[in-house]
């Protein structure tokens, strides 16, 4: 019974509304009124509270990101500077080491040169001394050869001819030795 009345009511409503409830203009006023209320409420909630808040949050986030990026750039620059300073220090130390090595090498070379020169001089002195001694020995040897030659020649002449003129033998030996 209840369902029957419900169906009847439904049919009555259908009869009243021409097929589509959308075209039942009797309730348009009601819908439009509540729509306008809804739109005004949403508009005020959005424009007064929600949108400025979200805009502020987004701006703040953008600012934070920008600041962080700037800070990161700064730190990166600092790191690059530190690296450059380190490289420079390293290069300086290397150059200093090279300089010290060169200096030491030069000093050693100078010492070496001096010692070599001294040794050379000593050797030269020794050689000269030796040469004089050799010259003296050679001179005495030559004299001895002359004496032996004269004596030998005189003896040979005496043995061959019985008599030797000492002066003639001397002259002949001297001429032979020179020639």
């Amino acid at each position: 019974m209840a369902t029957q009345t419900h169906e009847a009511a439904g049919q009555a409503a259908e009869a009243a509304a021409p097929g589509m409830p959308q075209l039942d203009f009797s309730n348009w006023g009601n819908q439009i009124f509540w729509l306008l209320v809804t739109l005004v409420v949403i508009y005020f909630v959005l424009s007064r509270i929600a949108l400025p808040r979200i805009a502020a949050v987004l701006a703040e986030r953008q600012g934070t990101i920008t600041n962080d990026i700037a800070a990161a750039e700064e730190l990166k620059a600092k790191a690059v500077d530190a690296e450059n300073a380190y490289n420079k220090a390293l290069a300086d130390a290397r150059a200093e080491a090279q300089r010290i090595i060169a200096e030491t090498k030069a000093e050693i070379q100078a010492d070496l040169d001096a010692a070599t020169a001294k040794a050379d001089a000593e050797i030269a002195a020794k050689v000269a001394e030796g040469e004089t001694v050799i010259a003296g020995i050679r001179a005495t040897a030559l004299d001895a050869v002359k004496v032996v030659a004269k004596d030998t020649a005189a003896e040979i002449v005496a043995a061959l001819s019985g008599e030797a003129d000492a002066a003639t033998v001397d002259a002949a030996v001297a001429a032979r030795i020179k020639g």
Binding site: N27, G29, N30, Q31, I32, W34, L35, T38
Partner: peptide
């Protein structure tokens, strides 16, 4: 009757949207 101020299912679902 549905007057312009009547609280209907339209009102309810628009309020839920809000």
């Amino acid at each position: 009757t549905i007057e312009w101020y009547t609280i209907t299912n339209v009102t309810l679902w628009m309020a839920l949207a809000v």
